[in-house]
């Protein structure tokens, strides 16, 4: 798959495409001093290939746990989890992950941080370095390749960490509140950029957030979760055409949808 090819599918054609991520009857129980806690309860979630699924929910609803289980970073208690048709039993090394905090290494430059993904697996080639440069340039970081993370702003650092997740062109991208540490303007710009990057690579994305506008703006589908126990409340198909512009944030239809999700989450009375 090339970075330059834009996949022409739409939400409609995707609904019949093969499954990228699937959880069936997934439950997660943590043992605490107060006894067992149900972090996730019977979660059935499907992300089709090329689909962008946003998961929105209050803090403590287990949405981050869900992502960690899909990534194979955490064992689950009950149910089945499959990525690309194979059950997840150990950390998946073929998915891209972006965390809330950028988790950049302070002593590596922006370029070197992106290439960490390569260095951990094999010897890097000149093509890898070229690719890393291209990626950084594509998110507006040309000229900052040799900057240390300490010299970059929060938004720039998160862009670097996204490039690190993308350099090996994973089919599946997992993002855990990647924008919640950023200021509002940076976040909006990054939403637009992220949409473009995902479209370019044709990836399947599981996007965890607690921001409703983010979830709706980016998602083909929004999955709404409730807390204690963490469970799926509702799935909403987002019909807006892509590419979506920031103007959508002021669209009445967009706001209706956001309001509906808000009432599902109990933030405003239904």
């Amino acid at each position: 798959m090339s970075l330059l090819v834009t996949e022409p599918d739409t939400a409609v054609s995707r609904s019949s495409s093969p499954v990228a991520i699937e959880t069936r009857d997934l439950s997660q129980v943590f043992l605490t001093k107060q006894g067992p806690v149900h972090a996730l309860e019977r979660v059935d979630l499907t992300v089709r290939r090329g689909e962008f699924v946003s998961v929105v929910g209050p803090s403590g609803c287990g949405k981050s746990t869900l992502l960690r289980i899909v990534a194979g970073l955490e064992r689950h208690t009950f149910g089945e989890v499959e990525v690309d048709g194979a059950p997840v039993s150990k950390p998946r090394t073929d998915v891209g992950i972006v965390f809330q905090r950028d988790a950049l290494l302070d002593w590596r430059t922006a370029l070197e941080n992106v290439l960490l993904q390569v260095d951990m697996r094999r010897k890097r080639t000149r093509a890898d370095v070229e690719r890393a440069r291209e990626l950084l340039a594509s998110v507006g970081l040309q000229g900052f390749e040799d900057a240390l993370p300490g010299q970059l702003s929060g938004g720039m650092r998160q862009r670097v960490s996204i490039c690190r997740a993308l350099i090996l062109e994973p089919d599946v991208l997992l993002m855990d509140e990647p924008m919640s540490a950023l200021d509002a303007l940076t976040r909006e710009q990054l939403m637009v950029d992220l949409q473009e990057m995902v479209a370019r690579n044709g990836m399947s994305v599981l996007f965890i957030t607690h921001s409703i506008p983010e979830a709706v703006f980016l998602g083909d589908r929004v999955v709404v979760m409730g807390a204690r126990p963490g469970r799926l409340i509702e799935e909403i198909v987002v019909p807006f055409e892509r590419p979506r512009s920031l103007r959508l944030l002021a669209d009445p239809e967009f706001n209706d949808m956001a309001t509906r999700i808000r009432s599902l989450l109990g933030e405003i009375p239904a």
Partner: peptide, 10 residues
């Protein structure tokens, strides 16, 4: 996070 990232890179 960094440890998890390392694990995801194998």
């Amino acid at each position: 996070d960094v440890v998890d990232l390392g694990r995801s890179m194998g």
